[in-house]
Design a protein around this nucleic acid. Structure first.
Lengths: 147, 147
DNA sequence: CTCTTTCTTGACTATTTCGGTCAACTTAGT
DNA sequence: ACTAAGTTGACCGAAATAGTCAAGAAAGAG
């Protein structure tokens, strides 16, 4: 039931862009520094995100990565779909012909239910939710001097 | 979000034992034949299942594998736990010290929710449920001559 | 126009995990 | 004893993963 680093880092990448974009693109170099990720690895995460219409990139000075859609229109499931492919825990879910027992296989049904459970979580959350949760955590850290 | 073949084959192994045990142990060789799995690979699945108290094995003639507990007391989560280890999609869930940002990491919370969602499914199902589902599918296949 | 800055692309590599095989051993029954 | 099981641990090849790098293309600034 493992998530690869693509999905992990990719989500952090997007959240970082969401938090630091002030209208302008966010540079990969800065993301790499803040998130402590290799710049050369991040480059490979951006390509599929562009292909999936999740981010836009601009080259040259003051270039970088920006979100291609409003925060609330970027679902976690979009990100994972783009970076990890399917969320199916096993191949026969996506391709019934993968195994000739698919029709009568009880265990296959279970893996399907598991996929559904994780998809429910991923589809119910958007980047906006992540940003809000992040801000809440930040506020919780600050002592409230103004009271 | 992939399940390895250990969890996949192990679940089928257990279901096969549940379906074919008539008081006596079920032999690995027969399981391998029925499930079309390599005998040598199955051997590696049995060891952790014994360690987890899920099955007992007896050696020698007429030996084999038998369930160590009643069907309804073997949860899917027990099986997966034993064969795959944790269901955490990412290491920092099990070990917060794995990453120094764990406390304030929003994405980590998400992976935790996903784990919880899959655990809910796995803990709600027992081998007995699988057996019953299997029988229902079998019956559905038979045309009902008796009507 | 050219220089710099930034992303783009694809090649490359190291490491790990996975799936699978096998042989030697132990135990239990006949 | 002999035979029929499971037990254990070593081993291997293939594939996936994670990561690095270098050459190039686009966009702006001057």
């Amino acid at each position: 039931m493992k998530l690869s680093t693509k999905g992990e880092y990719g989500t952090r990448l997007l959240l970082d862009v969401a938090l630091h974009s002030r209208g302008e693109p966010v540079q990969l170099r800065d993301i790499a520094r803040r998130e402590k990720l290799s710049l050369w690895y991040l480059e490979h995460l951006v390509a599929p995100l562009v292909a999936g219409g999740i981010v836009r990139t601009t080259r040259g000075p003051k270039g970088g990565v920006s979100l291609a859609r409003p925060l609330e229109e970027i679902k976690l499931s979009d990100i994972i779909q783009q970076l990890e492919g399917s969320t199916a825990p096993i191949a026969c879910i996506d391709d019934p012909k993968f195994c000739d027992r698919s029709g009568s296989c009880v265990t296959r049904d279970i893996w399907g239910e598991i996929q559904k459970a994780t998809d429910n979580v991923l589809e119910s959350l958007t980047l906006k939710d992540l940003v809000e949760r992040h801000k809440q955590k930040e506020e919780a850290k600050q002592p409230m001097y103004f009271i």
